[in-house]
Deep mutational scan, measured.
Amino acid sequence: LRQRHVACLARSERGLGFSIAGGKGSTPYRAGDAGIFVSRIAEGGAAHRAGTLQVGDRVLSINGVDVTEARHDHAVSLLTAASPTIALLLEREAGGP
């Protein structure tokens, strides 16, 4: 079961505080899956403080732009754009009992 949710992050002077992996033109985060995933969350960064991202979340869109088939460098450029806030649509595998 997959759950979707939106995370809104305000960029700090240190950026957004998370890294992505995967996407076309880069090493897959999961074998056989060209999706883009949250690969790291920086301690004390914007994403960590927001508490809405988890490592392993699939990134579906960035500020309304679909990145499900995107190249890695395109997703990075969307994240590093000048916008002071970033809205992410994420998909998470629902774990637990």
Rank of each mutant, 00 (worst) to 15 (best):
A42I: 14
A87K: 15
R71S: 14
E93N: 10
V65I: 14
N63V: 04
A7M: 07
S61W: 06
E43D: 15
P84N: 13
V76N: 09
G22V: 01
G96I: 12
R58K: 15
V59Y: 03
A75K: 03
V38W: 02
Q54M: 12
P97M: 11
L90N: 02
I62Q: 02
E93G: 09
R30Q: 14
G25W: 04
P97N: 13
D33C: 12
S61C: 09
A21F: 05
R71W: 11
A7E: 06
H74N: 08
L88Y: 00
G35I: 01
P28F: 10
V6M: 14
A10K: 14
G15T: 06
G96P: 14
R2A: 08
E13D: 15
G32K: 07
P28V: 06
G95V: 13
S26M: 06
G64Q: 07
T52K: 11
R49G: 10
A75S: 02
A87V: 12
R49Y: 11
T85P: 08
R30G: 07
D33V: 10
L16H: 08
Y29P: 05
S77F: 10
S77G: 15
P97R: 10
R92Q: 03
G95M: 11
T80D: 14
E69W: 06
H74S: 10
I62H: 04
R40F: 15
R40A: 14
G32W: 05
G56S: 04
T80Y: 12
E43V: 11
L1I: 14
A50Q: 09
G17F: 03
G17Q: 06
A75F: 03
G45L: 08
R30H: 10
G23P: 02
C8Q: 15
A82W: 08
A81I: 08
K24T: 11
I62E: 03
L53W: 00
H72A: 09
H74V: 14
A75R: 01
D66I: 04
A75D: 00
A21H: 06
E91R: 00
L78F: 05
Y29C: 06
H5L: 14
R14H: 13
F18N: 00
R92N: 03
G95H: 12
R58H: 08
H72Y: 13
A70V: 08
A82M: 11
P97Y: 10
F18C: 04
T52Y: 05
A47V: 08
D57I: 05
L79T: 02
G35D: 01
I86C: 15
I86G: 02
V65Y: 09
T80C: 11
A75I: 04
A42F: 14
N63F: 02
R49L: 11
S77K: 14
E93S: 08
S39E: 11
G35N: 05
I62N: 04
F37K: 04
R2H: 06
E13W: 05
D73E: 14
P97K: 12
A7I: 14
D33S: 11
E93F: 07
A75N: 00
L88D: 00
A50S: 12
R2N: 06
R2G: 08
S61E: 15
E69P: 00
E93M: 09
G44K: 08
G17I: 00
G25K: 03
V6G: 06
E69I: 07
A81G: 15
Y29I: 04
L78R: 03
A46Y: 06
T27I: 10
V67W: 00
L53A: 04
R2W: 07
L60A: 02
N63I: 00
L89G: 13
R14A: 11
G95Y: 13
R40L: 10
G51D: 07
G44H: 10
S61M: 14
G32D: 08
A70W: 04
F37T: 03
G17P: 06
E69L: 07
G32E: 12
G22M: 03
Q54I: 06
E69N: 13
S83Q: 13
T52D: 12
R40K: 14
A50L: 08
A34I: 10
L53Y: 03
S12F: 06
G95C: 12
R92V: 00
A70R: 03
G15H: 05
G15F: 03
G15Y: 04
A82F: 08
L1F: 14
G45S: 13
A10V: 14
G96N: 14
N63E: 05
R49V: 14
A81V: 11
A31G: 15
R4M: 08
I86Q: 03
V65G: 04
H48C: 10
G44P: 06
T80I: 08
F18S: 01
V59F: 01
G64C: 05
L16Y: 13
G15Q: 06
S83W: 07
G17L: 01
I20D: 01
V38K: 00
H48S: 11
A87M: 15
V59C: 02
G51K: 11
L89F: 09
A82P: 14
R49I: 13
L88T: 00
T80N: 15
V59D: 01
G22T: 00
S19Y: 04
A46W: 05
T52M: 11
T68N: 06
H72E: 04
